[in-house]
Write a protein that binds this DNA or RNA. Structure first.
Length: 572
RNA sequence: GUGCCCAUAGCUCAGCUGGAUAGAGCAACGGACUUCUAAUCCGUAGGUCGAAGGUUCGAGUCCUUCUGGGCAUGCCA
């Protein structure tokens, strides 16, 4: 279905072509939301932009365009304001019809991508044998949201959790496993026990060179394929993954693949060989490096693909990963949802991929950092960061206390279900409603806030819609007419039609917060409508129309929140 | 040294490719619940958009310089 701004753009373009203005090549008119509802629904600044290029009077050009246009029933005759703004107000008739179209559209007005593309999203990527801490929520929630949005637009999405399951830390883990492991504790909470063992060995190794050497020996044995060490490593990975999966399950997040670093082990050597044969990598100070001499920003920043000691770096691993994704997974695009500090690394591997002649569109979807109370980044290595699970549990507990207080008659199961939806939703929304590049200091208040611009506010709007239909019973047949009279009805209807404009926008710059903002505004608009326009107490066509608006709000909120990874419940 | 990111109300943050009187939430103050869930609504108050220049009819947004923070910068990932 065609969105309202698209219809306006088409008419505006036709109008412009009828004037005698000389339109520069490639110039396209643009329609945006009206800055202020008093001006109308949509506006175009294109007359001013064009007039500037043509050195004409912007107001006169705007007037000529408006006069030349045929606006029919789409909108009132556009008004010109200020230096040359063109303001559009959709007619009531068009808005009513369009609202019905959205209501009967299976995608709620969201246009489907054509052609659909195969997109790999690489996100979350925690390390094995370590607990996820609060810093992991950014990549995890943003990645999951982009996955949901891209799928809803009709793309073929493959989610891949590129876990850190290989590396030097396994020397210490294996050494500790053999010497200090408590099997019972391992069965109880594997990651906790692995961390305990790792820390103990780490402390010893720092103090005792012999222990350090023993760890290195264990690592070498692992790398050379020693059966015992490989079995220990495998069990460590399996146990850790089980625990990670249970958190992902709780969060409603799933991955198509868990192709971690170890998966690419035997592909690293061949990558370096190929780079060397093609002359892309060269020896420097004993290491094999790719130089980017043609790219000023990277001219003095080579990427090391093989260390002096023969070991490989994560640049090598990422190049091998790209090969697999392109040749085996047929990726058109790869999105890396990884923190901003790794920008240089991605510039390098993207540049290297281009030099290798691979044709794949890659984006580093960077995000800011979560800072500790000392304003320092919470790094994965430090053990004493706030753990993700602790935050999630605290949020659910807090929600549970409030649910019990507000709605004591609910069954135990319902209370649990609702508390989880609210608590987990609140934490997700706190993350996703913020611009992804903003750094912020971790705050329990922020994560556990349930008032104002939060997930429970949006969920509450949904609950209000369901309460009405619960009261009405099952036998609701929706009217095939929407009549818009009250201000609250008009504001809600136009807002509802804008869901389909918002969702594709998210992927323009990978911004889940645009959707969060939209849904918050929708909920606000609905709450105002709800206060102003009684539904069940109204009659006839008004009632029927309001029920449609209410049901459509319900659907858009549910679907919109689902795209953020947030679940709704019928009561709360 | 070089590069990237950030600085907006008391606090936490929006502000899309330059556009109209810079917006929310929290906190504060004043109203609205025998009513479709008040986790709500309505209203009041709160700002030299870090500083100084520049481009433009128009700058929170673009350019330059400066200040103050964060991060990255050849053998961890």
């Amino acid at each position: 279905m065609t969105l309202l701004p698209q219809l306006l753009r088409k008419q505006l373009t036709l109008a412009l072509e009828k004037t005698d203005a000389e339109i520069p090549d490639g110039f396209q008119v643009a329609i945006s939301l009206a800055k202020d509802a008093r001006f109308g629904d949509y506006q175009s600044n294109s007359a001013m932009i064009l007039a500037k290029r043509l050195k004409q009077n912007p107001r006169e050009l705007a007037q000529a365009v408006v006069d030349a246009g045929e606006w029919d029933s789409l909108c009132e005759k556009p008004e010109i304001a200020g230096p040359g703004f063109i303001n559009f107000k959709i007619t009531t008739e068009t808005l009513q019809n369009h609202t019905l179209k959205v209501f009967s559209d299976g995608h709620l007005g969201v246009p489907q991508a054509d052609p659909a593309q195969t997109i790999i999203i690489d996100f979350s990527a925690p390390n094995v044998a370590k607990p996820m801490h609060i810093g992991h929520i950014r990549s995890t929630f943003i990645g999951d949201c982009l996955n949901r949005v891209a799928r809803s637009l009709g793309h073929e999405v493959i989610t891949d959790n590129h876990i850190g399951d290989w590396g030097t830390q396994f020397g210490m883990i294996i050494y500790g496993w053999k010497k200090y492991l408590n099997k019972e504790a391992l069965a109880e909470d594997a990651i906790r026990e692995l961390v305990r063992v790792y820390r103990q060995v780490n402390a010893e190794a720092k103090a005792d060179e012999a222990v350090m050497q023993a760890c290195r020996d264990e690592l070498v044995k692992l790398q050379q394929g020693n059966a015992d060490n490989h079995a220990i490593w495998q069990e460590t990975v399996d146990l850790s993954l089980n625990q990670l999966r249970s958190i992902y399950d709780w969060l409603g997040i799933s991955f198509d693949h868990y192709l971690g670093e170890s998966f690419y082990n035997d592909r690293l050597g061949p990558v370096v060989d190929e780079l060397t044969e093609k002359g892309l990598a060269e020896e420097s100070d004993g290491a094999m490096c790719i130089f980017f001499r043609d790219i000023p920003a990277l001219a003095e920043k080579p990427a090391i693909v093989r260390k002096r000691d023969g070991g490989f770096n994560y640049a090598t691993s990422d190049l091998a990963t790209i090969d697999y994704r392109v040749s085996e997974l047929n990726a058109d695009k790869i999105w890396y949802v990884v923190g901003a500090p790794q920008q240089l690394h991605f510039q390098q591997i993207f540049a290297a991929t281009k030099m290798r002649g691979k044709n794949v569109d890659m984006t580093h979807v960077a995000h800011g950092s979560i800072l500790g109370s000392d304003r320092k980044i919470m790094k994965t290595r430090d053990g004493d960061n706030v753990q993700l699970l602790d935050v999630l549990q605290a949020a659910v507990e807090r929600a549970s206390a409030i649910v019990k207080e507000k709605n004591p008659t609910l069954s135990k199961d319902e209370q649990k279900d609702i508390s989880e939806a609210i608590g987990l939703g609140a934490v997700k929304y706190a993350e996703l409603s913020q611009h992804r590049m903003t750094d912020y200091i971790f705050s329990w208040d922020k994560m556990l806030s349930f008032q104002g611009n939060t997930a429970p506010y949006l969920m509450n709007a949904y609950v209000r819609t369901r309460a009405i239909f619960r009261k009405l019973g099952d036998d609701v047949t929706f009217s095939d007419a929407v009549t818009i009279e009250a201000d609250g009805e008009r504001a809600l209807a136009i807002k509802l039609t804008q869901f389909g404009e918002t969702v594709p926008d998210i992927l323009n710059d990978f911004r889940p917060n645009l959707l969060a903002n939209y849904l918050f505004e929708l909920a606000q608009t609905f709450h105002s409508f709800y206060e102003e326009c009684p539904i069940l107490k109204s009659e006839g066509g008004t009632r029927a129309s309001r029920l449609v608006l209410c049901e459509l709000t319900s659907r858009v909120l549910k679907q919109g929140l689902d795209l953020l990874g947030i679940r709704v419940t019928d009561r709360m």
